[in-house]
Write a protein that binds this DNA or RNA. Structure first.
Lengths: 218, 218
DNA sequence: TTGTCAACTGTCAGCCACTGACATTAGCCT
DNA sequence: AGGCTAATGTCAGTGGCTGACAGTTGACAA
């Protein structure tokens, strides 16, 4: 799986490409089936069969049934974290967070599209929000991500998350806003990546004034 | 017209009492097994066998494996909501929330003890926090409860939760504090109900000053 | 080219969570 | 006492998930 394979990124050997294709096919088939007939009503056998692999193979790519539903989000989050790690150290926390998202969105669009159509991803997002079992998983994932971001921000500032509450607070506010942006996007019609980028920007623009010292001046 | 119930309030019929006993026994056995050997490592067959009922009977009391782990919390939350509904309408939202918790704790102690030893409940709480599958369920439950409370508060104030953000904001702050109090309690040694009541009170006492205008005076 | 190695996959057997159908038991009420 | 019905047990089956083993196929060197 993630063994030290010294190969290029795009080509990477026939084997590697085949694996990637199978993985993408599984994700695509799963999301298609989930959104069409519902998550619970879809069996892993169906997904596997749609891609012409055995059920066992599915479980070699994804640890469980949920995981495939979050594959795209997983990728988006990883890119964001990477972007955040690369922000210059002298940026203020909220600025770094904001810049990381905005920069990330620019390239994420095509990254998503190379996995599944954005429109399918949007339908999948809505499906998650309306499936109790997936809502739970989603919350847990969000909570984990938030913690990771908080650790990262604390690291940048040389703080300890357990000693100083500020990292967690900033990150909580940031993630809260991102969550709302995501929700609004999911409820809207515009399913383009550009629209969520615009939404994100607009919402983040409100966070500064709300937190800044000028707050008290109203 | 006349109530033909020749029995006291608590019993209420042999059948009813038997059911209650079975339910309590299932909860107790489950928590005992979960905390001793872990959640995943415990099968429902084991729980059922410990109470001398069939697996099928377990599923007539609880919808799934998780549910039994949250039975006590479920009860606590129900009591709190009931208490909140009974608060006078002219109380300010945060005051009503605060009063409801504090009042609820007074009676909840014995209510918990009548189900399982408080010490077991505390171990169960810790077990939940360290079991990924249960963390997810816990988050989802919390999120649901928060929404219910927000609706209730909005109702008291004659507001619409979707139109006015204030109900959700107050409730979010309140629940956040409650969550922290619960977490601190779980990490501490003192497993008495009195201690969590004290913790709750102390934490809630900080909410006012933190929100009030005097904040800027530090 | 070919042979070896390692990775990937399929098959099979099995555990466990969960459910519907039906038979059986046991409170409840007249 | 006997009928009604809720509670329980039994059975069979589905689907998520895993370990073990064997077959296949890409990678790489001789």
């Amino acid at each position: 799986m993630a063994t030290p394979t010294p190969q290029a990124a795009p080509p990477g050997g026939l084997r590697e490409r085949k694996k990637q294709r199978t993985r993408d096919a599984l994700i695509r088939a799963a999301l298609e089936l989930f959104t069409e007939q519902g998550y619970e009503a879809t069996t892993i056998d169906e997904i596997a069969e749609a891609v012409n692999v055995s059920q066992r193979t599915y479980f070699r790519y994804f640890a469980n049934k949920e995981e495939v539903a979050f594959a795209v989000q997983e990728m988006v989050e990883a890119r964001f974290l990477q972007e955040l790690r690369e922000r210059p150290a002298d940026e203020a926390p909220l600025t770094a967070l904001r810049s990381a998202v905005m920069t990330a969105w620019d390239e994420i669009g095509s990254a998503i599209e190379s996995m599944v159509p954005v429109e399918l991803h949007m339908r999948a997002y809505r499906m998650i929000e309306s499936t109790p079992a997936l809502v739970a998983a989603h919350l847990r994932r969000s909570s984990d991500l938030e913690e990771q971001i908080a650790q990262l921000i604390a690291g940048r500032e040389g703080l300890d998350v357990d000693a100083d509450p500020r990292p967690r607070v900033v990150v909580a506010a940031f993630c809260g806003v991102m969550r709302v942006a995501g929700k609004v996007w999911g409820e809207g019609q515009e399913c383009s990546v550009a629209s969520i980028r615009r939404l994100t920007q607009s919402y983040l623009d409100h966070i500064g004034p709300a937190i800044a010292d000028t707050w008290r001046d109203r």
